[in-house]
Amino acid sequence: MLDLSFHSFASALKERLAEPLPGAEAHKKMASASRLRTAMQPNERTRRSAVLIVFYPYRGSILVPLILRPQYDGVHAGQMAFPGGRMERTDESLIRTALREAQEEVGIRVTDVKVLGKLTELYIPPSNFFVQPVVGILPYRPDFYPDPREVEHVVEVSLEELMDETIIGANAIEVRGTIIDAPFYQLQGFKVWGATAMMISELLMVINSVPK
């Protein structure tokens, strides 16, 4: 029964991802106040990157992994994110970037990932990256091997938990000495905000529009 329900979810999500996406409408719901006040756009120095949002079945649930970035001298230190990173010259596409980075950061076997589609690209002003979220599935729960230079902790979140509206909050968050007013998802003790929360917002809007 698990395989059938997961297969049905994956098939329906793939079909929905091929249709027009909510994009900015969904992103705005979880954007920080400072982002909404500014209109920064990609420029000639903007770099391309990609993240992998990968679902898999486990004990009657559908899970997706997030990672906690370690503390370092960078704009995204200590933040929750999806596995991913910058596009390399050897990457033939941003899908390849997402898969390669997921393998390097948490040990996901990319040959087992089936790509379902993509969400809307999202510009991240603090790091000047244009990020492509790639959505995929695995037929099993993977063994994670986090790269300690990139990942402090892997957090597995169920789809049911993600879709619980009570996890949404908003308050002032201190980031490198700056206070930012931002909405967030409270997931297993971690606040997920910023670009990752905006991606989750679009993902959930897409999932909620899948025909039941």
Rank of each mutant, 00 (worst) to 15 (best):
3 D>A: 15
5 S>N: 10
6 F>L: 04
7 H>N: 14
8 S>F: 04
14 K>A: 11
19 E>M: 14
20 P>D: 02
26 A>N: 04
27 H>E: 12
27 H>I: 06
35 R>S: 12
36 L>T: 05
38 T>G: 13
39 A>E: 15
41 Q>L: 15
43 N>P: 04
44 E>Q: 14
47 R>W: 07
54 V>R: 04
54 V>Q: 00
57 P>R: 01
61 S>Y: 10
62 I>G: 08
66 L>A: 06
67 I>F: 02
68 L>E: 12
70 P>S: 13
70 P>V: 10
72 Y>Q: 12
72 Y>I: 07
75 V>S: 09
81 A>N: 10
85 G>E: 03
86 R>Q: 09
88 E>V: 05
89 R>G: 15
90 T>H: 13
94 L>N: 02
94 L>S: 08
97 T>I: 10
97 T>Q: 13
97 T>W: 09
99 L>I: 03
101 E>R: 14
101 E>K: 15
102 A>N: 05
105 E>R: 06
107 G>V: 04
109 R>G: 03
111 T>Q: 15
116 L>Y: 01
118 K>I: 09
121 E>I: 02
122 L>R: 12
122 L>D: 01
124 I>Q: 15
128 N>M: 03
131 V>H: 06
131 V>P: 02
132 Q>V: 07
140 Y>E: 11
141 R>P: 08
142 P>S: 12
144 F>G: 05
146 P>C: 03
147 D>C: 10
148 P>D: 04
150 E>Q: 14
151 V>L: 01
156 E>R: 10
157 V>Y: 00
157 V>R: 00
158 S>M: 04
161 E>N: 09
161 E>W: 06
163 M>C: 08
166 T>P: 00
168 I>Q: 00
169 G>Q: 05
176 R>S: 04
179 I>R: 11
181 D>N: 12
190 F>G: 05
192 V>F: 04
192 V>R: 07
194 G>L: 08
194 G>M: 05
195 A>V: 12
195 A>P: 05
196 T>W: 01
196 T>I: 05
198 M>C: 09
200 I>E: 00
201 S>L: 03
201 S>A: 14
204 L>A: 02
210 V>M: 15
